Amino acid sequence: MTVSLEVAGLVVDLPGRDGPVRVVDEVSFDIAPATTVGLIGESGSGKTMTANAVIDLLPDGARTGGALRWQGEDLLQVSASRRRRVRGHEIAMIFQDPLAALNPTQTVGRQVGEILRRAGRPSDEVRRRVLELLDRTGIPEPATRSRNYPHEFSGGMRQRAMIALALAGSPALLLADEPTTALDVTVQARILRLLRDIQEDEGLAMLLVSHDLRVVNHVAHQVVVMYAGRVAERGPTAALLSKPAHPYTRALVDSVPAVRTRTALAHPLPGTPATPANRPSGCAFHPRCPIARELCRTEQPAVREVGAGRWTACHFAEELVG
């Protein structure tokens, strides 16, 4: 299978008060063209930091290791100028909060066209492309709306403008960081449908960062579950969510709001999430795990294959799937 992006043993260290903190620890997965990989987990699990590492948007002082092979080229080994050329043109990001990501002092049309102007495109070509992108992403009256400022758009319209901006450089990979979190469910469904249609039309690969399993189940072909900066489990979406091979994945599935019953949550996930800064010894999930044993407290489980395309970091995965 052709692979657009191969994340292999990625590590990210951030400076901390008592020394470096490993916020992403040996994370590995692949994304193929025209497919979506969902990256899920609770807040602080390392999802956004992993996506930011791909596009080289890490905080000052961050150190990386492993490999980020983009169409065969390791982005961790190339020059800073090459990484800048990749960002926006080959790999683009849709940020979680478009109101914060968009410049409030510039019109939407000017921001969408910025990457084209930087590439030296003629002004009439830039305008045609901007209007085409705004229309493609479902913004009505694009000629008029292109002259509006971000605060004049609704939340759903701002997210559509952010998608148009991401598409302006004709990327082959989209990184979507919680693209529907702040939207109501009807707008959320429209944005997800739009992303799916664009992906099908243009053959884009996509990394979808989310904490919402229902969103991921709707659009992702593969799922990577992260906990405390590490991969807990990864595999095909349907198989992974229907029969988890890690207790953390099972707990996430069981905690999805039960819409058709009177209960707000089916089975809330107990305890406080571990973070890379306070990661327990052994399996990081063991303080919250219902099947934890002494081995889990002392030995960190390696990510291992437990079925066709199924990988998990649990000592007792066979008991869960069996």
Score class of each variant (00 low, 15 high):
1 M>V: 06
5 L>T: 06
5 L>V: 15
6 E>D: 14
8 A>L: 00
11 V>E: 10
13 D>F: 05
16 G>H: 13
16 G>V: 14
18 D>T: 05
19 G>A: 08
20 P>H: 03
20 P>S: 14
25 D>T: 08
31 I>N: 02
36 T>Y: 02
46 G>W: 04
52 N>Y: 10
68 L>P: 11
71 Q>E: 15
71 Q>P: 03
75 L>F: 07
78 V>R: 15
82 R>A: 13
84 R>S: 15
97 D>W: 01
101 A>T: 05
103 N>G: 06
104 P>H: 15
128 R>Q: 11
133 L>G: 11
139 I>F: 10
140 P>K: 07
142 P>W: 00
142 P>V: 04
148 N>F: 13
173 L>G: 05
174 L>R: 02
176 A>G: 12
176 A>L: 07
180 T>M: 00
186 T>M: 14
199 Q>W: 09
202 E>V: 02
205 A>L: 11
206 M>F: 07
213 L>Q: 03
215 V>C: 14
223 V>Y: 06
242 S>W: 09
252 L>N: 02
262 R>L: 15
268 P>Y: 08
274 A>K: 08
279 R>C: 13
285 F>K: 01
286 H>F: 09
287 P>G: 07
298 T>D: 04
298 T>N: 04
299 E>S: 13
303 V>L: 15
309 G>R: 06
311 W>K: 12
313 A>K: 08
317 A>H: 04
